[in-house]
Simulated assay, not measured.
Amino acid sequence: MTGFINKLALATSVAVGMTAIGSAPAFAGTLTNPQFGGSAASDYLSYCSNGTSTFAGPTCTQSLSTILSGNSSAPGGNIELAKSSEKAEFDFTKNTTLTGKIGGKDIVISSLTQADWESDMDNNGKSLLSEWLDAAFAANQVTISNNTIKAAVETAFKNNNGRQRFSDPNISYVNQNDTTGEISIGLAGHLNASSILKAAMGSTTMFGVRLANLIPANIRASELVKVIYNNGPAKYLYSFAATASGQVNNLGVGADGISHNGNYEVTLASVPEPSTMLALMAVGGLFATAKRKGVKNA
């Protein structure tokens, strides 16, 4: 028994050491070699930041790497993917991507298409649109128990270009935690998204209730972003929790004095390194051996 304990201690020590190494990727940090792609690769807009204001146009001369160098405390500038999403000529079948490497692995960050909103990623019979609306209302303490009204909300959102409005994420930063490997993506948005969601309801009325009136005066909701990391499955990320960014879009082309005053951070777990998994499997095997020996000796 003493010999087994010694082997277990050694294996556990090795596993812990490997886990520490695996959880701190050698190339962890920020997005490297960022480039644009997708079927609408040129449909993006760069926003620079001076610390209190974001601005686009000819005065925004910061490099892509500089714009994306922020964090949750100081988001900085951002890159809007699918910038034409709110225009009449927008092609909702195409996407714009931001690609690069983080932690030495490929990452693709994309705007959404109509097909994305209609997809059933969880195979539960619900589209991404339906799941997102349910999550948005639940996160903001809005209860809609009538299925007819819920269906009307979804239809209104489609008819009033709500999907397009939430398909053009503004990427502020892409960082990786050196210890855990977790990837965090900053989404610049409205600290209060109430007016956007109300507009997406239009003037639709159901059972004498104007759907826009279901939207609270203060609501948090980010745009959605599609992420493919290390050639894995696509994931749709969004958030209903925001922090004040300390800045607003009030300079340059298209300044509205409202946008980018909220920072929504979404996260993506890093895949454990193979060495870490092998070490954990070895420890698990030793525990299984110990259990079998215990039963046998009994």
Rank of each mutant, 00 (worst) to 15 (best):
N261T: 09
R163V: 01
A15E: 05
V225T: 06
N249I: 10
T113L: 01
I79V: 07
S84I: 04
P216I: 03
A82K: 07
F92P: 00
S184E: 10
A241S: 12
A269K: 13
D116N: 01
E273Y: 11
T289N: 10
G77M: 01
N231P: 11
N33Y: 10
A26I: 06
A88K: 06
A11Y: 00
I149V: 06
T97Q: 04
S69T: 13
G284T: 11
G100F: 10
D134L: 11
S239Y: 00
I21G: 04
S39Y: 00
Q247L: 05
S84A: 11
S194V: 09
S245F: 03
V108I: 13
V174R: 00
A40H: 13
M121L: 12
P58A: 13
I228S: 03
K235A: 04
S245D: 08
A234S: 15
I215M: 01
S275F: 12
F90W: 10
G257M: 05
K101I: 12
I109H: 04
F240V: 03
G38D: 06
L45N: 05
S275R: 01
D106V: 08
S130H: 15
G186F: 00
K94V: 03
S127N: 15
D116Q: 00
A40P: 13
P272K: 13
N177K: 14
G252H: 04
K105W: 05
K150G: 08
K235F: 05
T289D: 15
V225N: 02
N78C: 11
L187Y: 04
N146H: 10
A288K: 14
K7V: 04
G262P: 07
T54Q: 10
I185M: 04
I5T: 08
F240W: 14
N250P: 12
N124A: 15
S119K: 04
L98S: 15
N263E: 14
A151F: 09
T12C: 10
A56L: 06
E80M: 15
L10T: 14
S46W: 02
G186D: 03
F36T: 00
I102Y: 02
L251N: 14
A244I: 01
E131R: 07
D134Y: 12
Y173H: 06
A40V: 09
Y173C: 00
Q35F: 01
L211I: 14
D106K: 09
N250T: 12
Y264I: 03
L251D: 09
F287H: 12
K291Q: 08
A136Y: 04
G162W: 03
Y236I: 02
V209N: 02
S203E: 09
R163A: 01
A242E: 02
V248G: 05
A298F: 12
N218D: 13
T66K: 09
L191G: 09
I258F: 13
S167C: 05
G285N: 10
K291P: 02
S119Y: 02
K198L: 07
K235T: 05
N261H: 09
N33I: 12
G186W: 01
F240E: 14
G17N: 14
R163H: 03
T276S: 07
E273W: 12
G208A: 08
T148V: 07
G100N: 07
A269T: 10
M121P: 02
Q141K: 08
T93E: 11
L214T: 01
I5D: 14
S72H: 13
